[in-house]
C-alpha cells in the first residue's frame, strides 16, 4: 500500500503531444509507471513514447482503463481539461500546469470535490511512490524505495531534500508536491491522514513556505491527530513582507503566514524543524535512529 498511487495506477496524460507532456511521459514510464493513454484533441491515432493518443479522456478511459490523469495543457485550457477528466470518472488528477487563475481553480476544486475526484496541484511536481508509480514531474534520480513520507509546497526544494534523504541511505514511501498556488487541490491537512494511515510510512517530512496558513493548519492537525514523527522545513525566513516571491501563494499579509509563526506552530506540535534545507536529511536519520526504526 502507498499514498494516492500504487502499482494499479493507470495514467492518462492530458496534453501528451506537447514538449513537457511527451518528455515527462517518457520519464514516468522509466520510473515504472503504467502510462496507458494520452489525450490531445485532434491527434487521435498517433503515439507518443509508445503511448496511444485519444481525442477525449472518456475514450482513453473506455479503451485503456486509465484511472489517474496528469495535466500539462496550457493554463487557459486547464479548467476544461480538469472538468473533462472528472466527468470521465478519473479519481486522481495531478495538474502540473502553472499560472492557472485562482478563480478557475476555485471552480475546479469544488467541481472535483463534489464528484469525488482528488486534485493534486496546480503548479506542482506531482506524486511519486518509488517502485510503484509516479504521476507528475519529480526527477526519477532523487528517489529510492523506503519508509519516509514527504509532503511539500515547493518543487526544486523538495527534489533537493528528497535527494539528500536518498544520499543518507534512506528512501521514500510516497512524496507529494502540493504546489504553491493560493488555491490547491490538496493541502497539508488533506494529505496528513493518508500518511498517518499508511503502513509504509514511518516518518513524515513536511516542507512548507511563507504565505497563507497551510502550515499552521497542518501543525494543529499534527498536534491533535498525527502520531508519527515529523521533520519540517519552512522556506522564506528572509522574504520581505508583501513582495511576491515567485509562488503566488508566498505572500505575507497581516503578520500571518510568516516563517516564524509556521516554525513555532510546528515545533509546538512536536515536529523537529530544521533551519536549513541541508539539515533535513540528517534530522530524518537522527529522529529515526532515536526511534530505533532504522
Amino acid at each position: 500500500m502507498s499514498v494516492l498511487v500504487d502499482v494499479d495506477t493507470r495514467v492518462v496524460v492530458q496534453g501528451i503531444t506537447g514538449h513537457q507532456g511527451s518528455g515527462h511521459t517518457l520519464q514516468m514510464k522509466l520510473f515504472g509507471t503504467k502510462v496507458v493513454a494520452g489525450v490531445t484533441p485532434g491527434r487521435a491515432g498517433t503515439q507518443v513514447e509508445g503511448v496511444p493518443v485519444f481525442d477525449s479522456v472518456q475514450e482513453a478511459v473506455d479503451r485503456t482503463g486509465a484511472n489517474a490523469s496528469c495535466i500539462f495543457v496550457p493554463a487557459p485550457f486547464a479548467k476544461d481539461a480538469l472538468l473533462e477528466a472528472v466527468d470521465a470518472g478519473i479519481r486522481l488528477v495531478v495538474i502540473v500546469t502553472e499560472h492557472i487563475p485562482f478563480h478557475d481553480m476555485l471552480i475546479m476544486y469544488h467541481y472535483a470535490k463534489e464528484r469525488g475526484t482528488r486534485i493534486v496541484g496546480p503548479n506542482c511536481p506531482g506524486v511519486a511512490s518509488p517502485g510503484k508509480a509516479k504521476v507528475g514531474i519529480i526527477p526519477n534520480v532523487v528517489f529510492r524505495p523506503g519508509r519516509v513520507g514527504v509532503i511539500s509546497r515547493s518543487g526544486t526544494l523538495t527534489y533537493e531534500i528528497v535527494n539528500g534523504i536518498r544520499e543518507n541511505g534512506l528512501g521514500q514511501s510516497t512524496c507529494i508536491g502540493l504546489g504553491g498556488d493560493p488555491v490547491v487541490g490538496t493541502s497539508f491537512v488533506d494529505a496528513l491522514p493518508w500518511f498517518e494511515n499508511d503502513p509504509d510510512t514511518d516518518l513524515l517530512v513536511l516542507v512548507g513556505e511563507i504565505g497563507g496558513t497551510a502550515e499552521e493548519d497542518a501543525a494543529e492537525y499534527i498536534r491533535q491527530h498525527f502520531t508519527k514523527p515529523v521533520v519540517a522545513y519552512i522556506a522564506g525566513r528572509a522574504a520581505p513582507a508583501g513582495k511576491r516571491m515567485g509562488h503566488a501563494g508566498a505572500i505575507i499579509s497581516r503578520g500571518k503566514g510568516t516563517a516564524q509563526s509556521k516554525q513555532a506552530a510546528l515545533e509546538a506540535a512536536g515536529a523537529r524543524v530544521g533551519r536549513f534545507p541541508f539539515e533535513i536529511p540528517d534530522l530524518v536519520s537522527e529522529v529515526l535512529r532515536e526511534r530505533g526504526r532504522r
Partner: peptide
Amino acid sequence: VQLDGNIGVIANGAGLTMATLDV
C-alpha cells in the same frame, strides 16, 4: 524581486530560491 541588500541570487524554483535567501 528586488530587495535591499547587495548579493544577487539566481535559483530555480520559488521554494529553493527562498531557501537560498534564508541560508
